[in-house]
Write a protein that binds this DNA or RNA. Sequence first.
DNA 1: GATTAACCGAGACGGTACGTCACGTCTTTAA
DNA 2: TTAAAGACGTGACGTACCGTCTCGGTTAATC
Lengths: 206, 206, 206, 206
Amino acid sequence: MTDVANGVAGHNGGVTDAPRRGRPRSAGADEAILTATLDVAREVGFRGMSMDVIAERAGVSKATIYRRWASKEALVLQALRSAINPMDEVDLGSVRADLVTYLNDLADRMASGNMTDVLPHLIEWAVHDEQLRVELDGYVAHRRQPLVAILTRGIERGEIRDDLDLDTIVDAFVGPFIYRKLLTGDAIDATLVDRLLALILPTITP
Amino acid sequence: MTDVANGVAGHNGGVTDAPRRGRPRSAGADEAILTATLDVAREVGFRGMSMDVIAERAGVSKATIYRRWASKEALVLQALRSAINPMDEVDLGSVRADLVTYLNDLADRMASGNMTDVLPHLIEWAVHDEQLRVELDGYVAHRRQPLVAILTRGIERGEIRDDLDLDTIVDAFVGPFIYRKLLTGDAIDATLVDRLLALILPTITP
Amino acid sequence: MTDVANGVAGHNGGVTDAPRRGRPRSAGADEAILTATLDVAREVGFRGMSMDVIAERAGVSKATIYRRWASKEALVLQALRSAINPMDEVDLGSVRADLVTYLNDLADRMASGNMTDVLPHLIEWAVHDEQLRVELDGYVAHRRQPLVAILTRGIERGEIRDDLDLDTIVDAFVGPFIYRKLLTGDAIDATLVDRLLALILPTITP
Amino acid sequence: MTDVANGVAGHNGGVTDAPRRGRPRSAGADEAILTATLDVAREVGFRGMSMDVIAERAGVSKATIYRRWASKEALVLQALRSAINPMDEVDLGSVRADLVTYLNDLADRMASGNMTDVLPHLIEWAVHDEQLRVELDGYVAHRRQPLVAILTRGIERGEIRDDLDLDTIVDAFVGPFIYRKLLTGDAIDATLVDRLLALILPTITP
DNA sequence: GATTAACCGAGACGGTACGTCACGTCTTTAA
DNA sequence: TTAAAGACGTGACGTACCGTCTCGGTTAATC
């Protein structure tokens, strides 16, 4: 993934390539900016937040921000990504156990809205920002991946029928989470996980 | 719900109360403005749309818009509501037939942009606009209602098990639609409907 | 003087021509509007005054105002004229006595700023409003007239030299009043009158 | 006089105080804006002129104008001041010669529009703008000063009686100029100067 | 130690949209 | 026909934010 594809201007991603000449970028600035971005977002919402305010809050000039991110959207995206912990692969030996673990983890994350409080804004921006669309797709795929892995292993082990569309199963599990989060506002908890499993597991096991 | 609670300035909502004095509001203006709003939104997105452009497109002055709606957000909300056709109740005698009909209808609506192209923006706004949140909740409930009715009838007829949580079933059906629409971008079509039914129907029938 | 030259739309000037059909114009409206105009002008200045406010204050609709006056300027001018008492002709037998009387009267009027508080606004408007220019010229001529009469009589009686330009004399008397009123802000009182007479009378008497 | 008292936002007045941080104000912008202001004023009058047009004409954004001047009025005042050439002191050895020179200079200036075309607007604004009032008073005093000097020298030399009020003499000379300019519209030329001198000089010389 | 190049903050810049206000006109119902 | 009420198109207002662009001043790595 290049910087351009990253929507990031001149970012290094932690890789130490040839040492640059001149004054190096301020070490703490990135973090200060990302933190300020999330803070401001929490306070006034993504809609009401301005680059000037973020810059001031981070104790940084606007130019410094734009030297590191190509746009407001890119900055916000980065800020959001920095707030996400990766979902761990799960392999407890049985599909049911793996699903219980994964889905409860997902439920916890969504309920405690770190990333997800901001998901609406992300989705909205992605509509008219192709770059963000790509990023968001990557995020979604990344999120689905452990679930896909669980189910694939299940098929291999014969725990899951192999005549079903895998994407549909994933959608049936994850869809309700998203739906509740974004639209109905209903609880996303262990109860939901149990009920979903009760609804879907019987069908997908041989 | 009052006009104030509606976020709308001086709107009447179709109720014919005491005949107003002075020059009445231009009859076609509301419609022209709402139409222009949706047109412009479709073309440049809600993010890129400006009140000046909407006014020009509607052949109306900005002042006229602000006389009728308190803000850009209120206008957009009204425009969206006006674009929604109510989902019909379905009762073909069997739960399976009803579900097939309802879900395919939903799939058609979601695939063909109208409301849903704008759903991301709606959701985003609702985060920081309580009134819009309420409106959106109403919309969601309205959308779920026919599905709830189908399942309730099914339980009464004994076609559906009565020991399952009804909300979870609805979520399992509708969630994947929303998830695909907003995040994965996967197709929302008859195939999805068939697969979802194959996944869930076996479990919920006795 | 026609209505057009008057800057007034449809005004009657007190002449009772053919009785009109339909509802007659509200009798008190003219006065109410003019009074409201002067009131508002005194409160917020001519610059800050709006037709809507005047209409509301007069208990009258804007249309009613525009039915009677062609423009804001025309209304204001009329309001100002209505506030002016005509200057009386003076003839006490001697030029000196006449001048003392006339100039002290003028000084009183200017000091107690009825018309004159508004003179700056009038002058400013007249720059780009030919109609108002004409009106204002008429007002100025009307104001000068008694002074011209005094001096003319003086010449006829031999009290005033006949080899001087009459306009210049008038200007030398009136100019300082205007100058002080509009620019220096110095007192306009009996002392000024005395000093001006002391300055100019010796020269213009044979 | 501070910037605030000046009605000007952040203006420096040529004083080189502590070196400012950040990007300095565009060097030519002030002049471009002032020039554009005067140009537009000449074309459409101060009444018909808009900030947008001035900004466009100056090749500058509206924000830049408002960064430098607090209001339209403040801008116009500055523009006017920038258009005024100071009146020179005159000392040709005799009061008569000095007066002829000064008054003809004044007549020329008043006849040829520059400042005086705008004097009505200035006066009008000063009614409701205390700052402008102060500025205008300064301008007036500045304008009177050479005339006062001429007369004072005349008194010292014994060319002018010392028992007359000096201000009244000045008013008698200058008043007619203002009166003609603002109200009567009569010519302001050498003839007027000659006649005024003929009217007043005999009295004020011993 | 001097040079040099990229960085830094501050903040001005041209644009563009915002929501408000006043003008003078127009369109209702009521008198 | 005129009245009050008030909506209408027009167009300017002054503000906010965008992303870019100077400034004078650091801060390293190179010479």
